[in-house]
């Protein structure tokens, strides 16, 4: 196991190097540089002088060819320095610290809700397989699974924030808190946060809910035909005990892999939704940094997303061996 982990670690490191190298090359060949897309610089009176521009280019490493600048970036990352944002004039790590909270509230809540709802629903549809109510649920879930979340977001916004405006069911259109948030009492603040979360969390949850339900059901269908289930039934165990104790536990293995694969989605899963709901999270930061050509932010976020993806895969493999003692790695 140890030698396997070490090998995986080095392969992962190599993959990261390649990914960041490719992305660095790509963004440096983008048309426009951070120095000429900054809106403050479009103002002719504040136009920086040529020698200032020269100095800034030097500071940001834009005067060097990009492979050299890449190596410099890498050297800084090794010491935990992700650089400074051009457009926001802050350390990238500070920006990330600001944005990670809102994103995690969204993704963790939705992940929690998904698991909470998907497992009972999946088990229920297995038990009721073939009956009209199961058909109904499956049909509905399939529809939801194919319903693009950004379309759903717009539909829900239209319904709850525009059409129902002024009624008791009105929900905020976007943002994660109301304008007068700082003056509210703590109870009001919690409520305000909650109301703002309803629509984004719904959109974030329903698609994965449909996916997970189908996943649980598909795995259960496979397990429930095994001989040991028949044995359990033959020795007179109750249906609930068979489903939960004998069948469901054996579907946990693919479930655990799924958990590992959701790890990157926690940070980067909602790029489009965050944009629609104007949610101040990581996805929005990434979007903004791309349009302002903010190289350090783009690089830092790409690095984070890729690290999480690799970690998720590794975690899935390790958990796999952990839940299934038959699997060993060499």
């Amino acid at each position: 196991m140890t030698s396997y982990l070490i090998r995986r670690f080095f392969i992962g490191l190599l993959t990261l190097l390649l990914i960041t190298f490719v992305i660095y090359g790509l963004i440096r060949t983008m048309p426009g540089s951070p120095l000429d897309t900054d809106p403050a610089m479009l103002d002719p009176s504040k136009m920086p002088r040529e020698e200032d521009l020269e100095r800034m280019r030097k500071v940001y490493g834009l005067d060097k060819p990009w492979p050299v600048a890449y190596i410099q970036w890498l050297r800084n990352v090794r010491y935990g320095n992700l650089g400074h944002s051009y457009s926001q004039r802050k350390a990238v790590s500070e920006l990330v610290k600001q944005r990670i909270g809102p994103t995690l509230t969204l993704s963790v809540t939705s992940l929690f809700l998904t698991y909470l709802l998907a497992i009972p629903m999946g088990l229920y549809s297995t038990v009721r397989s073939g009956k009209p109510e199961e058909r109904g649920i499956s049909f509905l879930l399939y529809m939801l699974y194919s319903f693009p979340s950004f379309v759903a977001a717009l539909f829900l916004q239209l319904l709850f924030a525009v059409k129902l405006q002024g009624t008791a069911l009105e929900l905020p259109l976007f943002g994660h808190q109301s304008p007068g948030f700082d003056e509210m009492s703590s109870v009001q603040q919690t409520l305000d946060r909650f109301w703002h979360m309803v629509l984004p969390v719904t959109c974030f949850t329903y698609a994965s809910l449909a996916y997970y339900c189908r996943f649980v059901k598909a795995n259960m269908e496979e397990v429930i035909r095994q001989d040991y289930i028949r044995t359990a039934r033959a020795k007179g165990l109750g249906p609930i005990r068979i489903i939960l104790h004998h069948a469901f536990r054996n579907t946990l293995i693919p479930f655990v892999t799924l958990l590992g694969l959701t790890l990157p989605g926690l940070l980067s899963g909602a790029i489009i939704l965050e944009q629609i709901f104007n949610w101040p999270g990581m996805g929005q930061l990434y979007f903004g940094s791309i349009s302002t050509r903010d190289y350090p932010v783009i690089m830092a976020l790409t690095l984070m997303f890729s690290v999480l993806t690799l970690l998720g895969q590794l975690l899935a493999d390790i958990l796999y061996a952990f839940v299934d003692p038959r699997i060993t790695y060499h």
């Binding site: 990914i19 992305i23 990157p264 980067s268 990434y286 976020l301 997303f305 890729s306 993806t309 690799l310």
Partner: peptide, 9 residues
């Protein structure tokens, strides 16, 4: 390993 939307953007 690269999130597809990130790469596409």
């Amino acid at each position: 390993c690269i999130p597809s939307l990130v790469l596409i953007l």
